[in-house]
Protein backbone atom coordinates (compact mmCIF):
# COMPACT_ATOMS: atom_id res chain seq x y z
CA UNK A 1 0.00 0.00 0.00
CA UNK A 2 1.15 3.55 -0.65
CA UNK A 3 1.28 5.43 2.60
CA UNK A 4 1.49 9.20 2.88
CA UNK A 5 3.21 10.33 6.05
CA UNK A 6 0.94 13.04 7.48
CA UNK A 7 3.79 14.43 9.55
CA UNK A 8 5.82 15.18 6.44
CA UNK A 9 3.23 15.88 3.71
CA UNK A 10 2.75 19.57 2.94
CA UNK A 11 -0.26 19.04 0.69
CA UNK A 12 1.31 20.17 -2.58
CA UNK A 13 -0.79 17.63 -4.54
CA UNK A 14 2.06 16.87 -6.91
CA UNK A 15 1.45 13.13 -6.44
CA UNK A 16 -2.13 13.64 -7.59
CA UNK A 17 -0.82 15.45 -10.67
CA UNK A 18 2.01 13.16 -11.72
CA UNK A 19 0.42 9.72 -11.22
CA UNK A 20 -0.46 8.37 -14.67
CA UNK A 21 -3.03 6.01 -13.16
CA UNK A 22 -4.77 8.53 -10.90
CA UNK A 23 -3.99 6.51 -7.78
CA UNK A 24 -4.21 9.63 -5.62
CA UNK A 25 -7.03 12.06 -5.08
CA UNK A 26 -7.23 15.36 -3.31
CA UNK A 27 -7.71 14.80 0.40
CA UNK A 28 -10.48 16.04 2.58
CA UNK A 29 -8.82 16.28 5.95
CA UNK A 30 -6.41 18.88 7.24
CA UNK A 31 -3.33 17.37 8.88
CA UNK A 32 -1.83 18.49 12.19
CA UNK A 33 0.68 20.50 10.14
CA UNK A 34 -2.28 22.29 8.53
CA UNK A 35 -2.12 20.76 5.08
CA UNK A 36 -4.61 18.92 2.89
CA UNK A 37 -3.08 15.46 2.64
CA UNK A 38 -4.05 13.52 -0.52
CA UNK A 39 -5.72 10.13 -0.31
CA UNK A 40 -4.66 6.86 -1.89
CA UNK A 41 -7.92 5.94 -3.54
CA UNK A 42 -6.95 3.80 -6.54
CA UNK A 43 -4.11 1.64 -5.34
CA UNK A 44 -5.29 -1.28 -7.49
CA UNK A 45 -4.31 0.75 -10.56
CA UNK A 46 -0.81 1.53 -9.28
CA UNK A 47 1.76 0.41 -11.86
CA UNK A 48 4.34 -0.61 -9.32
CA UNK A 49 1.78 -2.37 -7.17
CA UNK A 50 1.01 -4.55 -10.15
CA UNK A 51 4.68 -4.98 -10.93
CA UNK A 52 5.38 -6.24 -7.44
CA UNK A 53 2.36 -8.54 -7.54
CA UNK A 54 3.96 -10.13 -10.59
CA UNK A 55 7.24 -10.44 -8.71
CA UNK A 56 8.83 -7.70 -10.81
CA UNK A 57 10.70 -4.55 -9.83
CA UNK A 58 8.92 -1.21 -9.58
CA UNK A 59 9.28 0.81 -12.78
CA UNK A 60 7.23 3.95 -12.22
CA UNK A 61 7.78 5.49 -8.80
CA UNK A 62 6.86 8.92 -10.15
CA UNK A 63 4.98 9.77 -6.97
CA UNK A 64 7.79 8.70 -4.65
CA UNK A 65 10.46 10.50 -6.64
CA UNK A 66 8.36 13.61 -7.21
CA UNK A 67 7.18 14.02 -3.63
CA UNK A 68 9.16 17.04 -2.39
CA UNK A 69 8.70 16.02 1.23
CA UNK A 70 9.81 12.39 1.15
CA UNK A 71 6.35 11.64 2.52
CA UNK A 72 5.33 8.68 0.33
CA UNK A 73 6.38 5.11 0.91
CA UNK A 74 5.08 1.83 -0.41
CA UNK A 75 5.11 -0.82 2.29
CA UNK A 76 4.80 -3.66 -0.20
CA UNK A 77 8.34 -3.07 -1.50
CA UNK A 78 10.60 -5.81 -0.24
CA UNK A 79 13.86 -4.17 0.67
Amino acid sequence: MKIINKDYCKGCQICVEVCPKKVYSEGTEISDMGYLVPLVTNYDKCIDHNQIKKGKKPICELCILSCPDQAIIDDSYGD
Binding site: D7, K10, I64, S66, P68, Q70
Partner: peptide
Protein backbone atom coordinates in the same frame (compact mmCIF):
# COMPACT_ATOMS: atom_id res chain seq x y z
CA UNK B 1 12.09 16.18 9.02
CA UNK B 2 9.80 17.73 7.94
CA UNK B 3 12.41 19.84 6.14
CA UNK B 4 12.23 23.62 5.91
CA UNK B 5 11.23 23.87 2.23
CA UNK B 6 7.85 25.34 1.22
CA UNK B 7 4.98 23.13 0.04
CA UNK B 8 5.68 22.01 -3.51
CA UNK B 9 9.27 23.26 -3.52
CA UNK B 10 11.24 21.47 -6.21
CA UNK B 11 14.31 21.14 -4.01
CA UNK B 12 12.64 18.26 -2.22
CA UNK B 13 12.12 16.47 -5.52
CA UNK B 14 15.78 16.93 -6.38
CA UNK B 15 16.62 15.42 -2.98
CA UNK B 16 14.58 12.31 -3.75
CA UNK B 17 16.15 11.97 -7.18
Amino acid sequence: WPHMFCPGCGIGTVMSC
